[in-house]
Nucleic acid binder design. Structure first.
Lengths: 193, 193
DNA sequence: AGAGGATATGAACAGTCGTTCAATTCATCT
DNA sequence: AGATGAATTGAACGACTGTTCATATCCTCT
């Protein structure tokens, strides 16, 4: 007994990642079984292993793709620190609003990564944080920003911006442009001299 | 076969909650088995059920106790909005620094609560958020604060402050008083007119 | 000394877990 | 038409899951 329909090799892979993403975000990595993912895709559990070596890699690939995409799309203008910071904030919020499930997983499931995978993801995360801290330090040096501690300010800003995903829902009271503007205003005031 | 030593009724209960707290925080609720918790306490799995009706209640009780404690200890001075906001921020940071594992669980394991338990926890969380939003609205009314949106500012401030637990480690570069002061400075600037 | 209750054990239950693999089906190519 | 190989099934593996319960032990009270 095998396939009931034609071949689906090109679509099954992405559909597995989509289902895993959705289910991991909803119930958590540990609470989701390979059989649940398979059912969602409309396939038997064994078939998943044609597309991923194991469950752990399924999680790791989702997280790595997310962080590489986040880093790759961060384009900062060759401008003053304040303009760079604005670009960073708007990029961060926009990206997070567009991919709530990926963002959620990348933060929540860190502890379910095996040692080597965890280190790789953490390295990417630090790269991203460093981009922000570099901006803040430049602003300190130029006198544009007044910060007691650039590392702490980095973490505070990222936490604040990422928090948008705890409440923002598409079609709500505020548009994405509103949200960007309001958050940027608070960040600007918090760091400005 | 049964107990090897004397009775431990008064200590076993708390030790189970401690072990559950630590293990849930480290590996996640779904990834921790009752047998792991029992092993940590030095007891067989069956004995856990003398102290909790089931695993779910173990989680729920931890989260409820945490939020009730957080709310119960929030004493705001009868003063101007800025002084109230400072008290709120310092309380929040202090509380979070002191109980990183409880805070972590209360946020991360929301999705593992059954419907009724989830609603109860969410109600407590909203109560806490409302305390902050009330301060912010008062500041808006008095002209002390300049906020585009008090609800959004509430969420932004809480996210920023809670983020302290992603990086703060006891005995690190900054003292708890330093951290409180730096965060409060950023919040004050972000909301001030 | 003996009874009674609180505390704990350890085996058992039925179910689920991630993963493997021989067998099977289908599309494509010759 | 027949062969090839990719795609998939479904059964099976041993291990582990939360929970229950008869049984056993120890402390306390009489």
């Amino acid at each position: 007994m095998a396939r009931k329909q034609g071949s689906h090799a090109e679509t099954t892979g992405p559909r597995i990642r989509d289902a895993a993403l959705r289910l991991f975000a909803q119930h958590g990595y540990a609470a989701v079984s390979m059989r649940q993912i398979a059912r969602e895709v409309g396939v038997q559990a064994g078939a998943l292993y044609l597309y991923t070596p194991d469950k752990q890699t399924l999680l790791y690939d989702l997280m790595r793709a997310h962080l590489e995409h986040l880093l790759g799309h961060l384009q900062l203008p060759d401008a003053a620190p304040e303009a760079q910071l604005e670009a960073f904030c708007r990029h961060h919020i926009r990206y997070h609003i567009d991919r709530p499930e990926l963002v959620f997983i990348a933060y929540m499931e860190l502890r379910n990564l095996e040692t080597g995978n965890f280190a790789a993801i953490e390295a990417l995360r630090h790269q991203y944080e460093d981009r922000l801290q570099t901006i803040l330090k430049a602003g300190q040096a130029s006198g544009d920003f007044a910060l007691a501690d650039s590392k702490l300010a980095t973490m505070a800003i990222i936490a604040m911006l990422t928090g948008v995903n705890t409440w923002y829902r598409e079609g709500g009271r505020l548009s994405r442009a509103d949200v960007e503007a309001i958050y940027w205003d608070m960040v600007r005031k918090a760091v400005t001299a």
